[in-house]
Nucleic acid binder design. Structure first.
Lengths: 216, 216
DNA sequence: CTCATCCTGATTGTATACAATAGAAAAATA
DNA sequence: TATTTTTCTATTGTATACAATCAGGATGAG
């Protein structure tokens, strides 16, 4: 496995303490590599802002409540624009991809609601696929590039754990609205729906921030 | 001088042919460094999208007309949002910084119009300072981070060379309007003015794209 | 003359070696 | 005991060494 992906995933999955220094030698041994490729991977993560330089070496960035607020504001702007553009530019394949993602989203949510067993990992994943399909349909590679960097950060907090069933069912409804607007080529409606959708996510993460960040 | 800044500046100043491969050994010798720090700098530039991986090594990214269109669309969204937020959050120091930048902008444009000698380098620089002051006043570090990556790309084309005096004087007027709106805390007016301002820049670069990219 | 194949050299990718120093532990002073 | 100074060690930052492979030219066949 390549070093970049491994370290990035480790950070997202919270395998380091907040602010913990990344020990190069340790990572090198874990991945059976020398320090050279490890350092290069770290430099990339640094350029993305997931990791910050210390006096020597780097540590995983400790995102504050204010960071999360800013990131969600930014994501709201970018992704609602993307939804509007997607409603203009979407092709048949785009729609198929969105529908497929959303069908799987509905399915996993149903089994979750019926059985109440833990499906949060899957829900998070399929949700991401839906959002990504929309951004891809906006036909702007640079927009896609920047959104994918912005979206990564809140994953650290795995906020879906704190949604209740009602909220999750509600987000499914919103997804359907967005999909409908994009299908019918209604940019403004798609934009507004996405704007509210992500703003709801923002509110949720901010009201649960202490719960989310404090050790369970 | 550190390798990252040197290579980045070299790319922006067009010191490499479009698509040219970055020879590590050469850069290392130029900067009296070993290849290790050079490679790390390159990895950062790669993460920012200024440089793309080849089969072996990397080359400077060759931005197309479509890239420029996408980048300006993105910048329009981000920076008009920033202007709106700046109108809400600006402090006295923010306003001072913007005014200072814009005064210098006016001054250098005046001497340019009067004498018609080449001041394009300065004009570009002071223009950037004004825009940066606004983004900083929006009080969103992550927005700032992403905008600064987006803004860099078009600099490669040094499009200011192709503005005529009328256009430059017009952009000064728009700056004044934006500054006024931010001073008076009129977010919507600031947002719209900035939106149109950057969209004008977009049009300009796109209509002059062939002139700009073909070797003079 | 054109195209395919095979070599050769140059350049990258990775590993190791060495030098510099931050930070912790130990010692010393008040 | 608390606080400063000193020493030492672990880890980073940089340089070099070696291995892998791509690119371009030479050779040869059609």
């Amino acid at each position: 496995m390549d070093a970049y992906k491994f370290i990035k995933d480790s950070i997202i999955q919270g395998k380091f303490e907040p602010g913990a220094r990344l020990a190069e030698e340790t990572l090198a041994k874990t991945l059976s590599l020398s320090r050279t490729p490890i350092r290069e991977a770290i430099k990339q993560l640094e350029a993305e802002g997931l990791v910050i330089p210390l006096k020597r070496g780097v540590g995983v960035r400790n995102f504050t409540r204010e960071d999360i607020r800013q990131i969600y504001d930014l994501r709201t702007i970018l992704e609602s624009y993307a939804a509007g553009q997607a409603a203009i530019h979407r092709t048949a394949e785009d729609l198929e991809r969105m529908q497929d993602a959303n069908n799987r989203y509905e399915k996993v949510i149903q089994t979750y609601v019926e059985s109440d067993i833990d499906r949060i990992g899957e829900i998070t994943e399929v949700n991401q696929e839906f959002h990504e399909a929309i951004v891809a349909a906006a036909r702007n590679d640079h927009l896609y590039f920047h959104i994918s960097k912005v979206v990564v950060v809140p994953l650290v907090f795995r906020s879906f754990y704190w949604y209740n069933q009602f909220q999750i069912l509600q987000s499914l409804e919103v997804h359907k609205t967005i999909l409908e607007a994009i299908t019918n080529q209604e940019p403004e409606r798609a934009r507004i729906a996405m704007h509210e959708h992500i703003y709801q996510g923002r509110d949720h993460v901010l009201t649960n921030f202490e719960k989310i960040t404090s050790p369970s």
